[in-house]
Design a protein around this nucleic acid. Structure first.
Lengths: 113, 113
DNA sequence: TTCGCTACTCTGTGTCGCTGAGTACGAGTA
DNA sequence: TACTCGTACTCAGCGACACAGAGTAGCGAA
């Protein structure tokens, strides 16, 4: 899906993961898998884990270790109050951006195609 | 509009500028002004010029110098064939991303708000 | 024992937007 | 003349983020 995607994901991937976590708690490997199902086929595992470390250090999530039947223990992340607030800000920024871009796209629709 | 915006603009700002240029040729200062009008109030001039240098080096735009009544000569950028193709790819990536994100947002709408 | 899946960690790299300062030109004003 | 103001572009350095790629570790099946 091209290198453009890599750049576009900067900033939005974090919001996407927070949104997933707001639906229900999850651990890294699971999040990666879920993203792949949802169409982000070439998301890199390392990227997700790094992102999770980041949002943990910022205090947006709570963590609990849960033993796994298969493999090492899971670090389960759940969104806390700060995380929900951050997510709300993300949605507001995202809405702002999409509205502007649609505004720019509109007059151009004839042009491309 | 927060630091989130800075990250979100990565990758998309280039598409936005290409879209503006596909509407009509323009020079740096003008593009900056136009973006500000359209709501991107705190876009930094230096960012736009750097971006223009980049897309020039990638051969997405043609350039002509036009004398200005007020100030230094203008570097007018116009989208060429490669640029239009790149723009089309941008729209396709953008559409992909917005669709996924809306798909994730939907089940969460109750949650935030 | 080896293979494969689960699950997480870590170091280094490139790209991008921002910061902040600088250059340069012309017109109006004191 | 000297000053300021608006136009127009340049540049060095910084921080944040996604990716590349390799490594560690646990478990079950062939």
């Amino acid at each position: 899906m091209a290198k453009q995607m890599t750049e576009m994901l900067k900033g939005t991937l974090e919001g996407i993961v927070l949104a997933l976590l707001s639906d229900q708690p999850a651990y890294g490997y699971e999040i990666t898998a879920r993203l792949r199902e949802q169409g982000f086929a070439d998301i890199v595992e390392g990227t997700i884990y790094a992102l999770l470390v980041r949002i943990e250090q910022r205090g947006l999530v709570d963590i609990s270790k849960v033993p796994s039947e298969k493999g090492p223990p899971r670090k389960v992340y759940s969104l806390n109050a700060a995380g929900r607030e951050h997510l709300a800000e993300f949605w507001s920024s995202w809405t702002f951006l999409t509205e502007r871009i649609e505004g720019i796209r509109r007059p151009t629709i004839e042009g491309e195609k």
